[in-house]
Amino acid sequence: MADIAARNPTILTGDRRSGLHKLMQRKSTIAFLMALPLILLIAILVAYPAGYAVYLATLNKGMTRFVGFGNFEFLFGRDTFWLVVYQSCLFAITAVIFKAIIGFVVAHFVHNIPAKGQRKWRGMLLVPWVIPPAMSTLAWLWLFDPSYSALNWLLGIFGIEGIPWTGEAGWARFSVILVNVWIGSPFFMIMYLAALKSVPEQLYEAASIDGATWWQRIWYVTLPMMRNIIAITALFSLIVTFANFDIVRVLTAGGPLNSTHIFGTWAFRVGIEGGDIPLGAAVSLFMVPILAVAATFILRDITKRGSEV
């Protein structure tokens, strides 16, 4: 075979050309080539740092020798670490639930506004989401400020004693979750609004003919039609909220008594401020399995429903 091909170079070149031509005509090849810049960008900005973090997490404190899972073993024995795990879960899960509920309710309100005025409302409601979080959190910090708190001043007008917004563990946790919900709800709102607009009107009409109540229409029509969007939005938000840094860092810096630290802020405290970079890397990597498990379940569910359709 090889001899024949070698003796007849014209055929060989023609075959190669047509092979390449066919390859280039394939949709998957074009898609790959178009995605290549992004893939390279992700490799440089995400895959390399992630790999480097894994490498760092396997070193000792002085970064002079390999310790395998030593840093993780050490973390498992620390009370503060488990406090951070608890707080990260509390922070992320509570915030995502409230963001989803508020986003869902507000999306319905906006959906029911006549088309003419809807754009204005959509724009205004997106404001908390489009302001850089570090900036809007600073504004919240001033609202919660011990000396100049505008919120406490308002409470004072009604004779209510000032609240230690960031000074007491419970209130501090409430404050950081509140700010996260305030910033993140518009994202849910806009995603749900898009999903609501894609639900065929006929389904509601059919439900009305069948005598469905308002609640039944939500439960049997709206929610099933929005299920995938809800799942993807929740997953995306869960990942972003778990990895949050700026809100807690600006508002409480993890205090008081470490009661608001989440993985990101504690990793920074231990790794950068405390000079134990391998341990900091290990703390930040601890998010990966939690998020991987959540992502697997949610995405598997979506794929299953996709194949059922």
Partner: peptide, 21 residues
């Protein structure tokens, strides 16, 4: 001391003094 001192950062004491409190 003020009840919220456990949450003070490096700017809190400055603000507290400059505010006249």
């Amino acid at each position: 001391l003020p009840p919220d001192v456990p949450s003070w950062d490096d700017a809190s004491n400055n603000k507290f003094l400059v505010s006249g409190q």
